[in-house]
Structure formats: C-alpha cells, structure tokens
Design a protein around this nucleic acid. Structure first.
Length: 449
DNA sequence: TTGTAGTGCGCTCCCTGAGC
DNA sequence: GCTCAGGGAGCGCACTACAA
C-alpha cells in the first residue's frame, strides 16, 4: 500500500463494500454540449472535456487528487447505455459498469473514435478529440452516457466516472434543429411545433411570415388574424409556438411612429410592442401611461373655462386613446426603420430619420373638441354630462356622469350657499359644481374603470 | 457527401359510443 | 344529458434510405 498524497498523512484507507462509495473516483468536470455524429465532443462552453481523479471528502465535497500515483494514471473513455445507473446511485461495481458498455451496431464498428486513452497529469486530463460514428437511436433509451475507467488496475477501488445521459443525433439534423432561444432573424420553422416545410410553415410563408420577428410582429399587432393563418391549430400548439418565440431576445432597437397632429410619438420595439409614448417632450414608458395624472384635476377644472353655452363637454384624458392610436399606428406602419435605441429606459435617436407616421387622429377625434393642456396631451375623450333639476328651497340636484363609466355622481348643491358672484356666470357656476366631482368622484370612477 | 423523400413514432385534438 | 375512454386523423420530429 502506498500513500497517494504527498502532503499531510492521508486518512486511514476505507474498506469499500459494494454499497459504499469508494474514496477515489473518476469524474467528468464539465457538461457536454449537444452531440452529433462525426463532430468533436466538446463542453458546453466549447472547451475540451475535462476529466479528473477526485477524492470524496466526508462533507460531500471532492478534491482533485494532485499528487501520488493516482494523479497520473491512464484512463479510458467508453460509451455506456443511457440507462446505466438510472436510479442515480452513488456507486456500482466494475462488473455493472462493464456490462453497460456499448459497442457499435456492427460488431467490428467502433462507436466512438479518437484518442480515448488519456494520461492524467496532476489528477486531470483533457479529451482532445473524440467523436461518435453513429447516433444513439438504435438503443432502447435512445441515449448514451460517456464512461471513464482505469486502463490498469491501481490496487485501489476507483469508481468509474459517468456523464449525464445524452442523445447523439445525426450530424445532418443539426441544421434543422430548433433554436433555444430563437433569434429574430430565424426562419419560423426554428420554432417548436412548426415543421420545416410542414403545413404550418407553408401557411405562414403564404402569408409572408418567414421569420420569427415577422411572426411576433403579427402576433403583437393582431393575434386573432395571425391565428387564422394556421389550419387547425390547437391551443396547446399555439401556446408552445408563441411561448417559444417570446423567449427570443428582442433587443434595444426602437421604431418611432410620430403622430404629428397630437405631438405624440409612439415607440415600438423590434416586435412592435409599444414600449412608451412621448407627449411633447415628456417620455412615458408603457407601464406609466395609464396611471392617472395628478395634473388631471386642474385640467378638469379648466374645463369650465371652455364652457360657453352647453352643459355637455369633453374632458380629454390619457387613457384609451393610446390604445386606439396604437392600433391606428399598426394600420399605417410602412417602411419600418429602427432608428432609436433604449438607453437608461429612454429612447435615443441613433441617426437622423423621421418616420412617416400617418396618423388617423383627425378621424378619431373629428367630433370632439381638442383642448390644449400644455404638455399633457389628450388622450381619450371622456364625455362628461351634467344635468340638473331644481329642488325646493333653492337647491339644485346635479347629475354628473361620464360616458362609458357605470357610476354616476349626484351632487346636491344648495344655491343658498353661494349667493355671491359665483352664480353670476355659468362658467364659475360649473367650476363650483365640478369641484367635488373632481376631487372625490372622478379618481374613484377611474379606479373602478 | 449532401439533399430529399419516405417512414415510424409520439403527441394532441376531435369524434364517437358506451356507461351512468 | 353528461362524462369518459378509445380510436382515428393530423402534425411535428427524428431518422433512414437512396439518388445525384
């Protein structure tokens, strides 16, 4: 018996039974990347596969054996059936290991080519060149493992090393595989559930959708319309396709769509998701657009200034018009050019270019009065209707309602309270009526909406 | 060696019929 | 009338065979 470590005295040698994990073990130190026939075996990061002789420590940790004769033994790489050690046990016998070695389909054929015998140096070695000559489909599990065993008996039980089970595929299928994650420029059949030249692929091609980016753009713009492209698409398949497509990196490039009539600029990402809107010189990211503006109330009060004769007026509020204009933008998008990038959550122009944003605003608001509130610009038109009926004792019951909102607000204001100049003009009177409504009722109604 | 057509397998959906 | 299981159809996927 020899000491394996040149350092401090080694712990007493353990007697190893079949169910007890040996003290020393061969190990693959990195994970394999997908394996194809006739292609060099490599680790996930593209480096060579690294193997090592390790010592199992008591605290479930391992140490590479740097010194002693075990640190420079010769080891052999073999192919194992994928079902070897399916129960993930800590150890096995050499006989079990050897029984699961796979040879080629033909007796004489070598399944694994290359330099399969490695000499450890300092307890480590690299598998420089090795490749499979055949795929793993002929085995019952359709998978292999790589195994690592000593070439010569060292006198010490050294547990063989194994990799996780993996498939070996035909080299030619590599060019037809799905991408994880897919890229925007990938053809659509790189997505799950879309077979190359299959029915779905053909249907998409016929609709002019040949890349993942175009598919996602169509999805974002009008999912229903896109779905009609596919014949007999199941919800599960649809979910899988979109779910896979959505994992792709969208990037920071932005497309600007200007709506000049409103001084609004819409920013869309690479798949045409609205990411933010610029009102004048104020940019608001999408998640902030629909938050009620604190400055709304003064605006609402200003409405009174615009009133002349009618008791029906419009409040322009930034709620649903963004959505309406977004849909309009989709309809009018032509010559999409990504001329902005997102930097620190703000769009920045990368070169001079003005998108030709045809706007349909005039159509949308053609029957509504546009009020200029400075930088916070209109969005959706809330039509506020105020009616009244006289009550006894100089009180008037005002009914305030907003078109599109379920709740209405009743205000009973006693004209006796304001026998001053307020009542002298309709303008001031309406402002007086609106005060409570603006302060209490409107925020509540917006919240309900 | 490479491209393509064909094949088998597995998955999912949908229809149908039996059982309650 | 409702539920559930079984079978067929359609499709994607991976692989094989074969021809150029």
């Amino acid at each position: 018996f020899r000491q394996f470590s040149a350092a401090a005295a080694a712990p007493p040698r353990l007697l190893v039974g079949q169910s007890q994990r040996p003290r020393y073990q061969l190990m693959f130190l990195n994970d394999l990347k997908p394996v194809y026939t006739m292609m060099k075996l490599e680790a996930k990061d593209g480096s060579a596969l690294k193997v090592a002789m390790v010592e199992n420590l008591e605290n479930d940790q391992t140490n590479v054996v740097r010194f002693g004769h075990l640190s420079s033994v010769r080891v052999e790489v073999v192919v194992l059936h994928g079902n070897f050690n399916a129960k993930k046990e800590e150890c096995w016998t050499p006989e079990e290991f050897n029984k699961h070695i796979v040879w080629g389909r033909e007796k004489s054929a070598k399944l694994l080519n290359g330099d399969l015998t490695l000499k450890l140096s300092g307890g480590e070695a690299f598998l420089g060149s090795a490749n499979f000559t055949d795929n793993s489909s002929f085995t019952s599990t359709k998978k292999f493992r790589l195994g690592l065993r000593l070439v010569n008996d060292s006198g010490e039980r050294v547990l063989e090393g194994i990799t996780e089970p993996f498939r070996v595929k035909e080299r030619r299928v590599e060019g037809f595989e799905k991408h994880y994650p897919p890229k925007l420029g990938d053809e659509v059949w790189r997505l799950e559930k879309i077979g190359r030249k299959g029915a779905y692929h053909q249907a998409l091609s016929d609709s002019g959708i040949d890349t993942v980016q175009k598919l996602l753009q169509s999805y974002v713009k009008n999912e229903e319309k896109l779905l009609k492209t596919f014949p007999k698409m199941s919800p599960a398949a649809w979910k899988a396709i979109i779910g896979h497509a959505m994992t792709c990196e969208v990037g920071d490039t932005l497309y600007l769509h200007e709506i000049k009539e409103t001084d609004m600029q819409f920013f869309f990402d690479a798949i045409l998701q609205l990411v933010g809107v610029k009102f004048g010189d104020r940019y608001k990211p999408l998640d902030k657009i629909h938050q009620p503006e604190k400055v709304l109330y003064p605006h609402l009060l200003q409405i009174a200034d615009f009133l002349t004769n009618a008791l029906t007026f419009n409040v322009l509020y930034s709620q649903n018009l963004v959505e309406t204009l977004k849909q309009k933008a989709y309809e009018n998008m032509k010559d999409i050019q990504y001329d902005h990038v997102m930097i620190n959550n703000r769009p920045v122009r990368v070169h001079k270019f003005h998108a030709k944003g045809a706007s349909g605003l005039s159509n949308i608001l053609q029957n509504q009065q546009i009020l200029n509130y400075g930088t916070i610009l209109p969005v959706h038109s809330l039509t506020v209707i105020i009616t009244y009926e006289r009550q006894p004792l100089m009180s008037i019951r005002w009914q305030v309602s907003i078109v599109g909102f379920k709740e209405t607000s009743c205000l009973v204001k006693d004209l006796n309270q304001r026998r001053d100049s307020v009542l002298s003009s309709k303008q001031l009177m309406l402002q007086w009526i609106c005060q409570d409504f603006c302060r209490v009722r409107l925020p509540m109604m917006l919240a309900i909406k």
